[in-house]
Simulated assay, not measured.
Amino acid sequence: MRVLVVDDEPMVCAHLRTILTSAEDIEVLDAAHDGAAAVESVVRHLPDVVLMDLRMPGVDGLAAIERIGRLPKRPAVVALTTFDLDSYVIRALRAGASGFLLKSTPPEDLISLVRVAADGHTVLSAAATRRLVAAQAGEQDARDRARTRVRELTERETEVLVCLGEGKSNAQIAKRLCLSEATVKGYVSRMLDKLHCENRTQAGLLAYDAGLVPR
């Protein structure tokens, strides 16, 4: 797996590089210290995963995620933050981030979660998702819009969407719904297209907005 690390603190980048390169299957291609340099590095190196700090001077992580999302070949972008209720996190997820990690994540967990992100899965705990969405409470209009969007789904697609909202992988969804992983992958692909969602994380957040997953 090819990884780009982005943080305005060189020591943080060095720390992340040390942790990640201790795994034989991970290569850190580059380190960038602001959002503009991050986008340039993505174009140049084509990483599989980007670990993106959100709060940086100049072009911040949120703007960089939005720009990366417009590229023809997009890596999985995982937001890095110090606080799990960082106000930037929800905006980053809606902009296309595949999830977020706390900078205090233990090294062994960081490595495994980067692998999860590279496989196209959400890097976000269910508990953290509930806290983030709870911070958006009171937006009834957003819930109404979400409910309108999910009405287009079939019953089975709705079941898959609920599983995404719970942060489940394709294998876990297949086990719960008694389907093959290939079938689940097909459902997810068609569902993302119907909902106009860029990735699984955005679909999972939509499941919360629509009230399909308990807060």
Rank of each mutant, 00 (worst) to 15 (best):
R147P: 01
E152D: 12
T81I: 11
R44A: 14
D144H: 13
L16V: 01
S169A: 03
P47E: 01
L161P: 05
V3E: 02
T122G: 00
P107I: 08
S22P: 05
G96M: 04
L161K: 01
L153N: 01
K175E: 14
R55A: 10
L80P: 05
R190L: 09
L192R: 09
R147A: 06
V78R: 06
T81K: 10
P72A: 08
A64P: 09
L16P: 03
V49F: 03
L80A: 06
R200E: 10
A37D: 11
L192K: 07
M56N: 04
A127W: 11
K73A: 13
A118F: 07
A38I: 08
L153D: 04
D144N: 13
G35F: 06
L29F: 03
I19V: 15
G165N: 09
E66W: 00
R91S: 12
G35W: 05
D141N: 14
Q172H: 01
L179N: 01
A14R: 11
D53T: 08
V123E: 08
Y187C: 02
D7L: 11
P75T: 06
D193I: 00
G120E: 08
L101M: 10
T81P: 13
T105A: 10
C163T: 00
Q136L: 15
I19S: 04
A171G: 03
Q202M: 09
K194C: 00
L177W: 05
T129N: 14
R145V: 13
E157A: 13
E40D: 14
L153F: 01
L110E: 07
V39A: 09
H121A: 15
E9Q: 14
L177R: 02
Q172C: 01
A97H: 07
E152C: 09
L51N: 02
L101K: 01
D48F: 01
L110N: 12
A118W: 03
S87W: 00
L20G: 07
T81G: 11
L54D: 04
N199E: 07
L179M: 15
K175M: 07
H196E: 13
I90V: 15
P106G: 05
S189R: 14
G69I: 08
A36N: 04
V49P: 02
A32I: 11
V12F: 00
E157Y: 10
Q202G: 10
V12L: 05
S87D: 11
A117R: 05
E40I: 04
D34N: 15
L29K: 05
V12N: 02
L177D: 01
L29A: 12
R200Y: 04
M11K: 07
V114P: 10
R149Q: 10
A23W: 02
I90K: 00
R2K: 14
V77W: 11
G186I: 07
L51T: 04
T148C: 00
R94P: 00
F83S: 07
A97F: 08
A31V: 07
G96E: 02
R94W: 02
T81E: 12
H45Y: 13
S87G: 00
E181A: 03
K175S: 11
V43Q: 15
A207K: 08
E40Q: 15
A95F: 06
E166P: 03
H45W: 12
P75Y: 06
A32D: 06
D86M: 11
